[in-house]
Design a protein around this nucleic acid. Structure first.
Lengths: 345, 345
DNA sequence: CTGTTAGCGCCTTCAA
DNA sequence: TTGAAGGCGCTAACAG
């Protein structure tokens, strides 16, 4: 079941078989057909390793994520797998588990398998690893980290616009005391989101109240904890924006555990729109960051480099922007809705 | 940065470099050290494609799942990736999206990349695809489907024992009217779970009541719907076992939307123990099917075949069993606990 | 213990 | 339009 048997059966040379498969237009239709037939009968397909070896193109892309168990990633992985497959690429994925030693291992694996590009969707990345990739001429795309340069592109999430949408929504609803629960401020993307929130309030002329902005850790428990403290304040916020959905879920839980309701007593908005967000109780209003779009963008960025095979004139990396969008569900409402209740009391 | 440059720098032949890397014990320590040094200085590593081509071993394993977006799978993927990596294997994953055409594609991709084994963790599998693998001498493991034969192993989940634990727990708590919400009965594994439940009740001498066993579809909405109907019964069940966690979550929601509480009014038990189960409200008592164990078992099964390189005496497939275990959280309680409340009323 | 040599399966000039 | 021949980078005999 090698190319030779196909050649024999089609009564041509192996070179012709190869051509018939890779550039059918360069071979006589009659012969091509004979080859096609032989291929089908033998159920032949070329050995991708041999092919990679000789052609220098592995048709493999790498995807590195921090933890596929984190609900943000599976859809990204799926999206990336889909685009890649559609374009004839295989992908190999690697999880860093947030450890930089594992990250180094991942890069190494990618290098060994001769990937043609790597999408690195983690929130940290060490400079020297990028160096390794660049030196070996492997294009890469990052998410929110990294700076554009030859062979490395960057996808920036327009957090500001997404968060602005969310804040505006809350403002429109009539909220004036809006809290924010950030992610770990060690993460660049968490800092950006926090900044964006603060910027929005300023822009709206609403006074920023230090008390209402808390740092947390992007987990349900963290959100619960942070929200609990917020609820102990003399002037409880009527709405809270969370840095991600998990935090928001924790926050909702904190609200409810105090005997209050979402959105009756406090509105909650998340960020990411993980699959589960649509199934919380109440369904979570959140700023959706499309994993599908992220995947497409990352793939596109890689392709731009891959297609320019000449390493001499490597196309320089580019900056891409993807904009999250607010999806309204049922965790937000006008603060007025609970006034009647208080009035009754 | 090929093996040749390393050889030159270490002043040895390429064969020695190769040996120094693959079986250091067969080479003089002094020389080995020189090679090691050269390798480090040049930051050299062998091209895995060339290596696969000549050695015939790709050191790649395939993992096919139905949908990585399904919360059951990410942990399985992670677990499998971990074991594989620990043993020096790369993995490539494929999602079938529950479509048999995609399944065929996945198998094809695996074949092209010359995987040394495939773990197929979907709930369906067509016979002729298994044939393709066997014919090409690729070992495979299945989960709950497929029959053991040369080169193909099967992992069976001991649903009966897990479900028995759950039912016993409920019985002990004092429940007598126990409902069951099954998955789609088209799935073999869903049928087995239902059967197991029915068997348990019989064994316990508790009368089976047809009314209390409903078919659903393994989704939150499905669980909600099925539970709602259960709650309309004249004699509402005091406890319900669900075929998976998503269903259980839907069921809890249905209970609460009727103004009842879990576990005060009705106890709920899920199956799988997806990550989120620990974070529902209340945290879900569920029968945990360890993805980590599944992954280890699948890998082990594959290895047993892979290690026997001689295709003549291929080791025949084996049957493995993994037993789920009940993890108690807070969605179950004695039905008595709500009596005081009713009494007060 | 080490070097030489012959491919692994395929793609790609180069001639015919 | 086709075939012959030379590697791609490496491992695995086989000699020394």
């Amino acid at each position: 079941m090698g190319i030779r048997e196909v050649a024999k059966r089609a009564k041509v040379s192996i070179a012709t078989v190869s051509r018939a498969m890779n550039s059918p237009e360069t071979v006589d239709p009659q012969t091509a057909e004979r080859v096609r037939k032989a291929v089908a009968e033998l159920n032949y397909f070329p050995d991708s390793h041999a092919r990679s070896l000789v052609s220098g193109r592995s048709r493999i892309l790498g995807l590195i994520v921090s933890d596929i168990t984190n609900p943000f990633f599976p859809e990204l992985v799926k999206g990336f797998e889909d685009v890649a497959l559609r374009h004839g690429y295989e992908i190999i994925i690697g999880s860093t588990n947030y450890e930089s030693s594992r990250m180094a291992l991942c890069v190494r694996r990618m290098l060994e398998r001769k990937v043609e590009g790597v999408a690195i969707m983690t929130s940290e990345m060490e400079q020297h690893l990028i160096e390794q990739l660049v030196r070996r001429n492997i294009p890469s795309v990052f998410l929110d980290v990294g700076t554009v340069r030859p062979l490395v592109s960057n996808i920036e999430v327009d957090y500001a616009s997404g968060i602005q949408e969310a804040v505006r929504h809350l403002l429109q609803l009539g909220h004036t005391r809006i809290g924010f629960i950030s992610g770990p401020l060690g993460l660049k993307s968490a800092r950006i989101r926090r900044r964006a929130f603060l910027g929005c309030l300023e822009g709206a002329g609403t006074l920023e109240e230090k008390d209402l902005v808390r740092e947390s850790d992007h987990t349900i428990d963290g959100g619960l904890e942070a929200m609990s403290r917020l609820l102990e304040l003399p002037h409880v916020p009527t709405a809270v924006l969370a840095s991600n959905d998990l935090t928001a879920i924790g926050a909702m839980r904190a609200v409810r555990s105090r005997g209050l309701t979402v959105p009756g007593d406090v509105s909650v908005i998340g960020f990411d729109d993980i699959h589960f967000a649509a199934f919380t109780e109440p369904p979570l209003t959140t700023v959706s960051l499309s994993r599908w779009e992220l995947a497409e963008t990352a793939f596109g960025a890689l392709m731009k480099h891959v297609e320019q095979r000449d390493p001499e004139k490597a196309v320089r990396g580019a900056k891409y922007t993807v904009s999250p969008v607010l999806v309204m569900r049922q965790s937000t409402a006008s603060p007025a809705t609970r006034l009647p209740l208080s009035a009754v009391t």
